[in-house]
């Protein structure tokens, strides 16, 4: 009986995730796109939960649905969604390039899906989550893997993020008062010279 329930819930999440993803592609409104993405992510979180990956499920909601998508919405609202997108491509080879890369991505996905189906059917890959969940629990198991086996890549990723944040701060920093005055004076002088020339 329990298995039937799990399969039913999985089917529901599958339909929801797929439906939201497809709707996301065709929704004309940027806010609706973001909302469909949130729906897909919540469906994914439920799928994680069904697989026994509780920590991943909650993180999916907290980080993606709760934080990143809210930031997306924030930006969309600030910039305004009524703006029409320019349909003229500034880069000439963009479309063909995108099509090629998309095909490559699709091929990779098909390959991964094929392999994972093989693994599940063969019973080789299905033990990973059970191994993590065994004892003392999902969260502790993930912590052990994340801060034990994969500590170096994990810390390297965090350094990468810090570098990115510092880079953004450097790019977005305001000009200090003295520099601003300098720039304004240079601009004025340039304008004056132009007037003299005219």
């Amino acid at each position: 009986m329990a298995g039937g329930v799990v399969q039913f819930v999985f089917a529901v999440t599958f339909v929801m995730a797929l439906g939201c993803s497809i709707a996301m592609l065709f929704a004309p409104n940027a806010v609706h796109v973001a909302l469909f993405l949130v729906g897909a992510q919540i469906a994914l979180a439920v799928a994680f939960l069904l697989e026994g990956a509780q920590f991943d499920a909650i993180m999916q909601i907290i980080v993606y649905a709760g934080a990143i998508m809210v930031l997306f919405l924030f930006v969309i609202m600030l910039l305004g969604v009524d703006r029409r997108e320019a349909l003229v491509e500034p880069l000439r080879f963009q479309r063909s390039l995108a099509a090629g890369l998309g095909l490559l991505l699709a091929a990779a996905l098909v390959y991964v899906g094929y392999r994972s189906v093989n693994l599940v059917v063969g019973g080789a890959g299905s033990g990973a989550i059970e191994a993590i969940n065994r004892s003392p629990g999902n969260t502790q198991g993930i912590a052990r893997v994340l801060f034990g086996t994969y500590e170096l890549p994990f810390e390297a990723t965090s350094v990468l993020l810090v570098v990115a944040i510092v880079g953004v701060m450097v790019l977005a920093r305001r000009i200090s008062g003295a520099q601003a005055r300098e720039a304004a004076r240079a601009e004025q002088e340039a304008a004056g010279r132009e007037e003299e020339a005219a």
């Binding site: 509780q54 920590f55 909650i58 909601i61 907290i62 709760g66 809210v70 629990g137 999902n138 969260t139």
Partner: peptide, 21 residues
Amino acid sequence: LNIGILYFLAMGSLGVYGIVL
């Protein structure tokens, strides 16, 4: 849930949507 507190935080983070939307 053995992730009860995280679940509470997750629901809190979803609570923003109602207001933002």
